[in-house]
Design a protein around this nucleic acid. Structure first.
Ligand SMILES: [Mn+2]
Ligand SMILES: [Mn+2]
Ligand SMILES: [Zn+2]
Ligand SMILES: [Zn+2]
Lengths: 151, 151
DNA sequence: GCCTTAATTGATAATGGTTATCATTTTCAA
DNA sequence: TTGAAAATGATAACCATTATCAATTAAGGC
């Protein structure tokens, strides 16, 4: 009984692929944005007017826990989510965040050099501090193009 | 221009070095931790029982704006602050965060390589996306030594 | 199918860090 | 000394996220 990867991921972790979960997953799969729980909720309402905001939060939390989605904090006071393995996106990427309009840009330049540095750093840190590293984040903050023009 | 650097920084930006601000600054100068607003408030109360939590928040916000302090989000739901140019710390460093006990470790290994990569990336990004980069953050998340032993 | 049980859901209330408001106090320059 | 501007602190409000809990739904054994 092998389904798509997210279904297997859910099943293997002992969870069901219910309607609300499928709905949230579909929205994540179709966007290239970094949506908040509220964003997801509003979009979900259009397809299922009885879905609850709490369920959206719970679903996103579950997806994050089992690696179906990633949760980010870009400094605007609300968590934002992104599907792992999103077909619309580069696999491994990082983010630039505009300090004015809060827009978020994916980038994946110099990933090879970055990976190399990260590997080296991780090895050194786990030896020096006996710290088992699970993942890392890199964020660039600045002013985006349109915000600079309007200045 | 005859005070310490933080006083000049305040004056140049048109702000006064008041008692509450001096108090918060002193606490930041004496710690090597990453304190929350509440942490700062509790410590401040011991020296000035009439200080208000709002003032601490405002002060930290001001310090962050003019570059006296840095504000971080390590994922535990509250902002944490660190003095820029803290004499107790390495100048440029990044952070490891324990996902279990939320402890934070400064590190400054491979800063040379990192700086090189960051410079290269910043240049590429500002050209490709016309994005003016102001600063970046790097966080490693994982499990610290004591949390692994207790497992 | 039907039953049993556990997983899941959604309405609602509560939480907690942070901000907004506003009257009062402090600072500084004239 | 004085008056305007800046800063403060008590309080209420904000708002994203969680906790609670009764109701609904899904899966497995019969
Ligand atoms: Mn992204
Ligand atoms: Mn630090
Ligand atoms: Zn912008
Ligand atoms: Zn730990």
């Amino acid at each position: 009984m092998r389904g798509p990867w997210w279904q297997d991921r859910l099943n293997d972790a002992g969870f069901r692929l219910t309607n609300p979960r499928e709905l949230v997953l579909g929205i994540l799969r179709e966007t290239d944005k970094h949506l908040s729980a509220e964003d997801l909720y509003v979009k979900a309402l259009q397809k299922n007017p009885s879905i609850g905001l709490t369920t959206v939060y719970r679903t996103l939390d579950l997806f994050t826990q089992i690696g179906i989605a990633q949760k980010f904090d870009f400094g605007d006071g609300k968590a934002r989510y992104e599907l792992a393995n999103n077909p619309l996106k580069k696999a491994h990427h990082h983010h630039m965040v505009c300090l004015k309009c809060k827009s978020i840009i994916d980038y994946s330049d110099f990933m090879k050099e970055e990976l190399e540095l990260m590997k080296k750093t991780e090895k050194a840190l786990s030896k020096k501090h006996k710290f088992k590293i699970m993942y890392h984040i890199i964020h660039f903050y600045g002013i985006c193009n349109s915000c600079r023009e309007g200045d």
